[in-house]
């Protein structure tokens, strides 16, 4: 564990809590892509099956349980409790266009052909692109609530911090996981446009609106 990874994990946790609180407090999931949340739940489910097979640390196990529980709680709020506020008309990204390539890629490029490892690899590839339905929704409506933009920023910052963590681990532990690094870089790049608008607009107190 190093400071970059810890900060990354904290950003990840903050993102999830911000999203849950936003939906709970406003009693609405307007502007939130349920499809992205389905993909994230799938990411955690496929990645954290190792919860039953490997023990890394208490921190590791607790965080995995939190990510799993919160992702299903988010799905419950969107698709059951506050279903009436779910903006399905704007949540039209075809997730099979992400799922199918991720399945194929995880069968082609993996560390090991064991079921748990293939699920891990799939989860890494899927996480890289899981935010696309949400970004697609924002681009369709041309705007995002300030709180939604905070959520997206924290979620993007998490993987960006992991990149610094990987560089640090490469030099201090000679540890490198090529699959996670390449997917993590792609994941961060997908947020680049958003980061730019967040920093130039939201942090200056303006609304998050895409340029016309």
């Amino acid at each position: 564990m190093n400071i970059f990874r810890l900060l990354g994990d904290i950003c990840h946790l903050v993102a999830i809590i911000v999203l849950l609180l936003k939906i709970w407090k406003t009693r609405s999931c307007a502007g939130i892509s349920g499809k992205s949340q389905i993909l994230f739940a799938l990411v955690y489910t496929t990645r954290y099956v190792d919860l039953f097979f490997t023990y890394v640390s208490l921190y590791n196990s607790v965080m995995k349980v939190i990510f799993l529980a919160s992702s299903y709680a988010t799905l419950y709020l969107i698709y059951v409790k506050f279903k009436a506020t779910y903006d399905f008309n704007h949540d039209t990204f075809r997730i099979e266009f992400l799922l199918i390539p991720c399945v194929i890629l995880s069968l082609l490029i993996t560390h090991d052909y064991s079921p748990v490892e293939l699920l891990w690899t799939f989860s890494i590839y899927l996480e890289a692109v899981a935010i696309l339905p949400q970004l697609f929704m924002v681009s369709k409506t041309g705007e995002a609530e300030t709180i939604t933009s905070h959520y997206l920023f924290a979620l993007g910052a998490y993987r960006a911090l992991y990149i610094v963590n990987w560089i640090y681990r490469y030099y201090t532990e000679s540890f490198i996981d090529g699959i996670a690094v390449v997917a993590g870089i792609i994941q961060t790049i997908l947020y680049a446009d958003f980061f730019y608008l967040y920093i130039t607009k939201v942090l200056k107190g303006k609304d998050f609106k895409l340029p016309a």
Binding site: D9, T54, S57, D112, S114, S174, I176, A180
Partner: peptide, 10 residues
């Protein structure tokens, strides 16, 4: 380089 399988990250 440690390329053994085993993921300690989240």
């Amino acid at each position: 380089l440690d390329t053994t399988v085993g993921h300690d990250e989240l």
